[in-house]
Simulated scan of single mutants.
Amino acid sequence: MAINDYITGIQHVGIPAIDLDKTMAFYQSLGFERAGLFHNGKNRCAFMRLGNLTIETWEGDPTNPTAGAINHISLNTTDVDRAFAAAKQQGLTLVNDEIQSIPTFWRKGIRFFNILGPNHETIEFCQILD
């Protein structure tokens, strides 16, 4: 069992927003469409899509106002439980002790976990539960 058995490609790139409305308007001006707008607690989270690129942008977390301010890269995962087991087996650096979930995203929620890459970049393995 290898983690790449459960990955189909990039799902989204995560970028926190100082002003979510301005961020959505900016990406719409580049041709992106709003694929979803969700609430995570009191904060809003938008998914902006152009072709096969999806950007997740949200309010409420600190932002890094310097170049390279991407928060995470998310990989689409077909079976998050098996991917999590494979990540443990491969000895990857897990950020989460267990699989996380957000039930308010998409129709039936998401389940995900994060690892750190060799440069301390966060890589999310995410399964949409539709």
Rank of each mutant, 00 (worst) to 15 (best):
T77E: 10
F26C: 14
D19V: 08
T78M: 15
A17D: 02
I102R: 08
P103C: 01
T54G: 07
E59N: 04
T78N: 08
N64F: 06
T66L: 14
G31W: 03
T66F: 15
T54E: 01
T57M: 04
G51A: 15
F26H: 15
I55A: 07
N43I: 02
P118D: 15
L92Q: 11
L37T: 06
L92V: 09
A46T: 03
I99P: 08
T78Q: 11
N119T: 10
G51I: 12
A69N: 14
M48P: 02
N40T: 06
D97C: 10
W58F: 10
Q89F: 10
Q28L: 08
L92M: 14
G14H: 05
Q89N: 07
G109C: 00
L30N: 09
D79I: 06
P103D: 04
G117C: 14
G117P: 14
R111W: 14
I102A: 10
T93S: 05
H120D: 14
D81I: 02
D21V: 05
G60V: 06
P65H: 07
L92D: 12
F47K: 04
A86W: 03
K88C: 03
H12W: 03
N52L: 13
F112L: 15
Y27G: 12
Q28T: 09
G51H: 04
F47M: 07
T104Q: 08
F105L: 12
N43T: 03
V13A: 07
I70G: 14
G14L: 05
W106G: 09
I15D: 10
G31H: 05
H120I: 09
T104Y: 03
N76I: 06
F105G: 01
R111K: 10
W58I: 00
G14R: 05
P118M: 11
G109Y: 10
F47L: 13
I55C: 01
N119Y: 02
G60A: 12
P62G: 01
V80G: 00
I55N: 00
P62M: 01
P65L: 04
T78L: 15
R49V: 04
G91C: 02
E56I: 15
L53M: 12
L94V: 15
T23N: 13
N114K: 07
N64M: 13
H39G: 12
Y27C: 12
P65V: 08
W106Y: 13
M24G: 15
N71C: 02
W106C: 01
A25M: 15
T93L: 04
A87V: 03
L53V: 10
G91E: 05
G91N: 02
L116Q: 08
G41E: 01
N114G: 11
N76S: 12
V13R: 09
M24W: 06
L53H: 11
I10W: 09
Q11Y: 03
W58E: 02
A86H: 10
G51N: 05
K22S: 05
I115G: 07
N71R: 10
H120T: 14
K108Q: 13
V13H: 04
R111G: 06
A67V: 11
K88P: 10
L53E: 14
G117H: 06
T77N: 11
T122S: 01
D19H: 09
P16C: 00
F113R: 13
A87Q: 13
E56R: 02
